[in-house]
Design a protein around this nucleic acid. Sequence first.
RNA 1: GGGCGGUUAGCUCAGCGGAAGAGCGCCUGCCUUACACGCAGGAUGCCGUCAGUUCGAACCUGACACCGCCCACCA
Length: 887
Amino acid sequence: MEIPKQFDPKECEERIYARWEREGRFQADPDSGKPPYVIVIPPPNVTGALHTGHAMFVTLQDILVRWKRMQGFDALWLPGTDHAGIATQMVVSKEIEKRGMNRLDLGRDAFVEKIWEWRREKGDTILLQLRRLGASCDWSRTRFTLDADLSRAVRKAFVDLYAEGLIYRGEYMVNWCPKCGTALSDLEVEHADTRGKLWHIRYPASDGGEGVVVATTRPETMLGDTGVAVHPDDPRYETLVGQTVVLPLVGRRIPVVADAMVDRAFGTGAVKITPSHDPNDFEAGRRHGLERVAVIGLDGRMTRVAGEEFAGLDRYAARKAVLARLEAEGLLVKVDVHAHAVGHCQRCDTVVEPAVSTQWFLKIEPLAGPARRAVEEGEIRIIPDHWRKVYLNWMSEIHDWCISRQLWWGHRIPAFSCGSCGKSAGVDDPERRLVSMDDLKACPYCGGAVRQDPDVLDTWFSSQLWPFSTLGWPDRSRDLEKYYPTTVMETGYDILFFWVARMIMAGLKFTGRPPFRDVFLHGLVRDARGRKMSKTLGNVIDPLELIDAYGADAVRFTLAILCVPGTDVALDPKRMEGYRAFANKLWNAGRYVLIQTGDAAPAGPAEENLSLWDRWILEELDRTAAQVEASLAEFRFYEAADALYHFVWHRYCDWYVEVSKVGLSPSAPQARREATRHVLFRVLDGVLRLLHPFMPFLTEALWEKMPGRTSPLVSAEYLRPSGRTASNGEAVEALMDLVTQIRTVRTEQGLPPGQSLALHIVPLDPSAARWLEGSARAEVAALARLGEVGVSGDSPEGDGWLPGVALRYRFYLELPAAQKDTAGEGERLRAELKKASAERDKFAAKLGNPAFVEKAPPEVVAKNRAILEDYERKVRETEALLARLED
RNA sequence: GGGCGGUUAGCUCAGCGGAAGAGCGCCUGCCUUACACGCAGGAUGCCGUCAGUUCGAACCUGACACCGCCCACCA
C-alpha cells in the first residue's frame, strides 16, 4: 500500500465529507431506539460569511456530537440560518444603493423580494462553509427562521403572549437609531465611555432675578425643556421651587419642581427637564405633569418646534448653534470636562437617540421568574459557573423588551387596526381580537376594512423559539417528542442575554420545559495578541484561509486545545503550524504501523506474550481514554485535546513506536513480533477512535487504509476505557529515565550521535535488575543508539568508561578509542551531586518536621519518603563514582 | 455606580493545597530507513504586592496595585 510521507488534507477532506453525507452518517433517526443527544446550532446570519467565531462553535459542537454519536447516541445536530433583521436589511440596502437605487424608491414588497433573491443566491454559502470544517450536521433538518413553519411558530408565540396580556403596545421612551430608522432594545445599545463636556447654563428667573444654573451634557435638548428640577431638601433652591424660570433662546416660562431623583452633589444640583429626549426626564415629566416638546425628530434633525433658527439642523450642528447663541447672550456660565457613557447602535454605531414613540413590548417579569428559578435550582446548568451569576444578576434587573422594529425584513407583527370603528390591537382591543394567527380580512368588531401593523419583530423574538420551532412546534411532531428538550446549548458568552436567556424564558413559557440541560459558553476568538478582531485593526483571521493553509483538522484541533473555559482565545496561526505537524505526526505513525501490519489485522496475542512496554502503552491508552471522557463531560476541550496530543506524540510515538522497532526486528522471536504488531495496531485503532471527534478527516483517512475496515470511523464505536489495572509504570519510567540519562551524558560529552557505543549497566536493586530481563537490553540500546549492552552487579574492567547515575541504575558508557578522556566527567558528576543533595536536603527537612509527618495524609508522607530515598540513592551512587574517579 | 474576570518562562496560556508545567520562540547537535510538518539534548520563573490561615500556599482568606470585560435612565 502506498502512503505518502505527508498528510494531505486537500486530498481527503472533500472526498471524505462527501462520503459521510452521501451515506447519511449525520442523520438522526427518532425511531432508532437510541437515546437522544441534541444540539441546535446557533444559527449564523443568512448573509454572513464564516468567521472565527463560527469556526469555534462548529469545532466544539462537532466534537460533542461526533463523540456522542460514536458512543451510541441518536445524535442530532440541527443546522440553520437566521434572517437577522437589521443586519440583512442593511447589507441588501447597501447593495442596491450601489446600483443607484434605494429601498424607499423600490417600496416594501419589491425590496423584500430583493432580499429573498439575495437569500436564495447567497443564503447557503455559510452552510457550505460549515461543511468545510467537517460539521456533522443533519442537513436534512436545515431550518431558516423565515421558513413558513418557523414563521407560524413566531406568530403563534405572539398571539399567545398577546392573548395573555404579556405583549402590549404603548407610547414610551425607547432607544432610537436615527440612521437605521428603528427602535432598538436595550441590549442592542452599546455603551461607550466618551469624554464629553458638561455645560452650565443660566436660566433667568421670570421676575428678572438670577434664576438657576443647570448643568447638561446635551445643550441642544434645552430647546425642549419644560421644567427644572431640584432636590426637595436642597436649601440652595428652597425658595425657587414653585417659581418659574425663563428658558433662554425660547422664552418659554418653565416651572421649577422638587424631585428626589436629583443628585445634589452633581453639577449645580439643578437639572433641566426635557421629557421628550431623556428617559429620566420622561418619567420626571410624567410625575410633574410637564408638557412634552419634541425638538429632535426621528431622523436626528431638529424639528420645526425647535424654532426657525434651528429647525432642520442635525442634532450636533444644533448643539454648536445653541452654544454659540447662549455664549452670545452671556448665559453660558461654565464648561467642565465630563466623562460619561454614550449609547451607540450595535449595527451602525450611530449615537442612539432616546425618543418617545409607540412600540410593542413584552412583559418580562412573568417570564423571568421561572427562567431564574430553572438556573438557580440547577435544572439548567451554566458552564463556566461564573456565567451563572451573571445570568441571574441580569435576570433580576431585566426590563420589558421592546420587540417591534421599523424594518421591512422580518416577521411582520400580526396585529391589525380598523379603519372604520378605529379599534386597534394593543391599545383599544378589549377582547384581543385584532391579533390573530390568520390575516384578518375584516374588522371582527365592525366588519370594516383592517390594516396590518407595518412593523416587524426583533430578530431575537424568533431566535428565542429556535430550540423548539426547528423541531416542529407548535405541532406535536415526532422530532419534538424525541429531541426536545435539547441536550446542550453551546455558544459564545456574548449572546448570553440576547439569545440564551431568552430561549430559557420562551422555552419554559411555551413548552413548560427548559430548552436544554447544559449551557456551555466558550470564549471569544481574538488575534494572536489577544485583541478583538476588527476590520479597522486589520487583524481579522479568515478560517477558510486557515483551512486552506493548515487543513481543517489542524484548525479544529487548535481551537479545541485553546478552548479553556472562562477565557478568551488568542488565536495565533503560528500555533496552528504545530498542530498541523501533529496531524502529520499521527499520519506517519499510522503509515509506519500499516506498513508493518500489512493487509490483515494482527490477531491478539496471549496475555503472557505482552512485554513490559506493551502493557504500559495499553494502560496509557486506557488512561487517555478515561481522561478524554472525563474532560469532555465537563466541556474541558483543552484538557481532552492536550491528553490526546501528549499520548500520541510523547508516549506512543516517542517511546512505544521506537521500542517496537526492536520487537519487529527479524531477530526477534515470532511471538514477540506478533505481539508487537498487534499492540501497535490496537493502539493506533484506539487513537483514531479517540481522536476522531477532534480531527475527523485525518482519522477517517487513516482508518480507511486499515485492513478489514468496511464501515467508516464516523460510525464506529468510541473507545471505552477497559479498566486495565496491572501497572508497569514504575518499571517503564525507570527504563525511560535510564535512557534519558544516557542520552544526556552522550550529548554533554559531545559524543557523535551516530556512533554505536558500548554500555554497561549496574542495576541498583533486584526489581531494577528484573526489568532488564528479556528484550529490555536491546530496547535500551535502540533507544539510546548504543552497541553492546552488558549488565552485571559491578562496574566494568578497564579505562575509558564514562559513568552516570539514573534513578534505579548506574551505567558506564564506553568512550570511543580516540577519546579515552574522562577528565570533564568529574565536573559533571559534581554538578549533579550538588543538585541531588539540595533536593535530598529539602525532602529530608520536610520529613524531619514532626508536624508534617503527624498531620499530613499518610500517602503524602509515603510519597515524599520515596522521593527522598531516590535522592539519597542518587547522592550515594554519585559520591561513590566520584570517589573512584578521583582515585 | 454595580458586578465579574485576569496578573505563572521572551509570547499565548494550563495548573488552583502536597517535588513549578505545555505549545511556540531561543541555544547545541543530528537527514537514526514512520515523520526535517522530524529526532535528541539544553537554558529560562522572588507564580503582581503585602498581611493572614495551614505541618505545608502559585493554589485558601483579607487588603492593595495595575490590566480587561459586562451591566447601569445621575443630568
